[in-house]
Amino acid sequence: MSTASQFSSTVSANHDTTAISIDNLNKWYGDFHALKNISLKVTSGERIVVCGPSGSGKSTLIRCINQLERHQQGSLTVLGETLDENRKRLQRIRRNVGMCFQHFNLFPHLSVLKNCTLPQTANLRVSQAEAIEYALSLLDRVQMREHANKYPGQLSGGQQQRIAIARALCMRPKIMLFDEPTSALDPEMIAEVLEVMVDLANDGMTMLCVTHEMGFARRVADRVVFMDQGEIVEEAPPQQFFDTPQSARTKRFLTQILDHGVTA
């Protein structure tokens, strides 16, 4: 909660501690039912890890939260604002919800520093100098300050992902979404990204992470949500989730990934 004051916001003060409230969400791709009656509440400062086999709808779920995917049924309230057709509201929510992608999606034509300052100068009322100062402080935090003048193409995957996190943080978000941030990385680079994410979690950021890093889930998560075939099968604190999983599907999933030694 300590960072809540640090990340000043354009939205009026929100005393409700619910950060995200998802109610009976349904989504179809054509005839394929991707999300089935999903309901989930996330309180401010909570860290949630979403896991599940591929195609289970976990990425779709967190992409619905900032509407990179549109849902067809159910309601979605983010930071006290219910998502609807209103574009201005959507943009306001997007500016308050940071996102990191599997493939980083840095802007290759801009330097690292510009990647972090452009979103601020274009979308927040921030002066150039202020934007640079804030960007440098965040690049410092992800230990990428000395690369500020390089271009994304010159950096490794792990470095790019750390910059992507800094870029998302530049918008002073209240919620961070991570969509498999380490899946595209070489094993030796996973640690440096996870380290940044742990640091962020310890700072009190509200986080939703889709990840297969079970070690990270155990260390950081307040709750683990397990999804399969578009449904939430189980949600529990990590201790309980890993040690005494309730459903058969969870057990099968856990043995599969533990056998492959994905866990740290």
Binding site: N66, L68, Q91, R92, R94, R95, V97, G98, M99, F101, H103, N105, L106, F107, L118, P119, A122, N123, A164, R167, A168, M171
Partner: peptide, 20 residues
């Protein structure tokens, strides 16, 4: 991914096009 990153950072359509 470029469009998605821009959207997620709150860029409007014209800013996405013009700047990214």
């Amino acid at each position: 991914g470029q469009y998605e990153a821009a959207k997620a950072l709150g860029f409007s359509y014209w800013k996405t096009m013009g700047l990214i």
